[in-house]
Design a protein around this nucleic acid. Structure first.
Lengths: 148, 148
DNA sequence: TTTTATTTGCGACAGATGTCGCAGGTGGTA
DNA sequence: TACCACCTGCGACATCTGTCGCAAATAAAA
């Protein structure tokens, strides 16, 4: 079975939000190499996002509030580590995409992820599992009536 | 060849934005049956989004400003029609998803859309074309340096 | 220990989105 | 023609995001 916990499925009431585009960029870096300081993260992101250092830090700060990353004060500087697991997060995006954009109910065929620069063969196997779980969970989920 | 114009590719400076989640919901309805009045749209959306009538109209209004829909004053009531073409829009979402989330450069395999409740076999063929174009366009596109 | 280079926390601001409510028309009906 | 139901334009407000800048704290260097 999968070594990951399917972070997204739980928590129906709080509607666990997905990371935004820039947040995902940061998470990707962290999944590659962990932990990293704000400065390190920034230096990599700069080329891609063209941000000022402050923007990077603010984003990190907000990600902390949302529980996407954990801060570790190491001496005087903080370093960050992802608290969101890679594969469940990615699977969540995939499922949401399939469902919301294309109205595909069953799990997506993992074949489509073969060319991804992000996932290894081993991870693809996990992804398959996760996608299946998510698809199943979705079918049993009652229609959200949006009551506050 | 595809009967659609690839609305998204053009327009590099203005960065043609994609519709948001609720906006897409509205577009989907319009692609199914066109034109529709605000009230008609609302009655269908209500169950899914749990919105008030005003919210629906405001969203429609903003979609008009963005050029996603066109308004037609018919007597005293307005009806709306989508100005965004279905397949190019969907293809845009797919490509963006592949690229931004999974870092897949080539075009997505169309097989994955087979189970979509949204696209017919004929449309899948078009989708394939569009995805290929988008993937190609992406490769030649220079890195965005974010200069204002 | 005084200075200098970095950090960090936090406040700010503009723009996009979700979500309403109100006031002023218009058409049909009594 | 006076009234009622429904429509439209438009202003408002709370959030979330993207993006900074500043001042206080800390570590490293002189």
């Amino acid at each position: 079975m999968s070594q990951y916990t399917a972070t997204f499925i739980l928590n129906s009431r709080t509607a666990m939000q997905q990371p935004t585009a820039p947040e995902l960029e940061i998470l990707k870096l962290l999944w590659q190499k962990q932990p990293l300081t704000a400065r390190e993260l920034h230096d990599e992101l700069e080329t891609v996002l063209g941000w000022g250092y402050s923007s990077t830090r603010k984003t990190l700060e907000r990600m902390g509030e949302k529980g996407f990353v954990a801060v570790q004060a190491q001496g005087n500087k903080n370093s960050y580590r992802a608290t969101l697991d890679k594969m469940p997060t990615l699977a969540g995006f995939a499922q949401d995409f399939a469902k919301r954009i294309f109205e595909i109910d069953g799990p997506l065929p993992v074949a489509m992820f073969a060319d991804s620069k992000l996932v290894s063969a081993a991870e693809i196997a996990d992804l398959e599992q996760l996608l299946q779980q998510l698809a199943a969970a979705q079918l049993t989920k009652p229609v959200d009536s949006g009551e506050p």
